[in-house]
Design a protein around this nucleic acid. Structure first.
Lengths: 329, 329
DNA sequence: CTGAAAGCGCTTACAG
DNA sequence: CTGAAAGCGCTTACAG
């Protein structure tokens, strides 16, 4: 089947291609009668403009790049879903890039830029200076998703991780808990460092000793580390984990040893992914509204792409709350 | 910063643009000395060809569309990761489409086609005749992911759901279990219908009565349905659920009522997503190697895109096995 | 092995 | 309000 071209439509409608193009891109500039006639033919023939030609001629592709470190985390897919719904609303299409070695690989960012996108939504686990220097001079707007931008050139959308961690920790301290364990990633993730800061600040203010387990992102390694922790005779009153999966692993392991949750041990996650309601007991979480974060990042990016003069990149902080469930009392 | 163009490279190297283009696309056609000189300049200037111009001129975009119904399922993100890794290997970039109303909306498929892709990887929950008629006459190859193609025009990659369900059911029957409950979706999903068939066939052969719960994809609704089931005094020996999340919900609810898993009740999922090892006890699963399914689908698509004459679409069936964990004895 | 030239399918000032 | 024409940045037969 031959995809019809703009020439075909113009021919069938008895107008020039310029007019067909206008009907599609600036309908208000075309007389209603002409417009309706052309529109009808477009519909009948199922004509859809060739995206490459359009992008080349207009220098706009109505495509944005979404750059994430992995897809193997529930939080990332929820974020992309948020981005997608917003992109769809604004008429943008998504080009997906999964890469976690941006700091070391300048070629990759160049490929993203050259792939003809009008803007980039960027999620990176560690916003190191290498990463910043690599994305320097990107010719299209970039918005950071789920991390705060330290450079006024880029917008960002995230929650206040430091404050959220502080709040939940303080909340538990006020309830009288003293032995509060913090479980985080071994690897340096920007968001987790912020969470750790908040936790430490609250513990310090409460005159309590911070206790931290640093472990991997992999469930089987988590379990080894947690087992070792329990084997040494440790039992915290509260475990606060930067990821739901870690919280759940920890909780499951404790329960297998006969520790009652939440009676003897309270467990709290810091994401509120889909995992949280599939655990037993259901996991109390500091909510990270990652769908909304993705959604708003795409909105901001749209503003930046469509009104570059009037819009300045901003650091949006999304409000979040604690979702109390069964793993706390 | 000014992105350099092919003209800039040609100028700097003292050759024509044709030669620069050849260095990039057909390096073997260029004398080594020239090639090296041009390559160096390309590297220094960080030149990357404009994707739109390239796509327009060559009629190939090295982009494939990945069409999925949602991102809110662990299985879908694992599949996309599999697709991505393969696409990356073959030099393709991914354009992501999330849409679950393809049957009703002809416009959407047209947009996917017009978005300038060289091929389409298509995952759809219900491969209805409306869907088939909609994708009819697609000018680029289409490969179905995780569902079998009934039309020789399209390739497909999936497991044998019917046989897998039959096998696990038969396996449990041979172990002496008689009351085997099948938990599936209310909504018509092609893969789940196949699983149901296999389950029924095994039950029939074993002279046992099939018992089926049809419920929603949402955890809170699942729970209501399961609660009602237990409230009526039911207790199966085995529960086999088409999705891990359902299996886990069912198991958790049972345990809250004091039912011992796996002693009194064995539970089996039919996906083996990341959820499976976060449950307590860990979930026995019929593995659906969804990463590999995505991976192989992209490989097949690449063949179809690059050697359209020599390659015929095929229905690949991926082998799968049962992963025995703690939720069975 | 290399260059000149046509063409991919659009958009958009510029005239009228 | 509409058309003729230039141009977007490449690729690829076609010559040589």
């Amino acid at each position: 089947m031959h995809q019809s071209k703009i020439y075909d439509i113009a021919g069938a409608a008895g107008v020039s291609l310029a007019t067909v193009s206008r009907v599609i891109n600036h309908p208000e500039k075309v007389k209603k009668a002409t417009r309706d006639r052309v529109m009808n033919i477009i519909k009948n023939k199922g004509y859809i403009p060739n995206a490459n030609a359009r992008g080349l001629a207009s220098r706009r592709s109505t495509t944005v790049a979404v750059v994430v470190p992995t897809l193997n985390r529930a939080s990332v897919s929820e974020m992309i879903q948020g981005i997608y719904d917003s992109a769809n609303h604004y008429g943008y299409t998504i080009r997906l890039f999964i890469t976690d070695n941006l700091g070391s690989n300048a070629k990759e960012w160049g490929e993203i830029v050259a792939s003809s996108v009008d803007g980039i939504l960027f999620m990176n686990d560690e916003m190191s200076s290498e990463v910043y220097s690599q994305i320097k001079n990107t010719p299209v707007p970039v918005v950071f998703v789920n991390s705060v931008s330290k450079d006024p050139e880029y917008g960002s959308v995230c929650i206040n991780n430091e404050q959220s961690a502080y709040n939940i920790t303080k909340n538990m301290i006020e309830k009288g808990r003293k032995k509060i364990l913090f479980i985080t990633t071994e690897h340096i993730y920007t968001v987790n460092i912020q969470k750790e800061k908040g936790y430490k600040r609250a513990m310090e203010e409460g005159g309590l000793t911070a206790e931290i387990i640093r472990t991997s992102g992999k469930v089987n390694i988590n379990e080894e580390d947690f087992r070792a922790y329990f084997d040494s005779g440790n039992l915290p009153e509260v475990a606060l984990a930067v990821r739901d999966s870690m919280a759940i692993s920890f909780m499951n392991l404790a329960q297998k040893r006969g520790i009652k949750v939440p009676e003897q041990l309270e467990v709290i996650g810091f994401q509120n992914t889909r995992y949280a309601i599939l655990s037993n007991p259901k996991l109390t979480c500091v909510d990270t509204p990652i769908y909304e974060i993705g959604n708003r990042a795409m909105s901001q990016l749209t503003e930046l792409m469509q009104k570059p003069e009037e819009t300045k990149p901003i650091n949006e902080v999304v409000e979040n709350e604690i979702i109390w469930r069964e793993s706390t009392r």
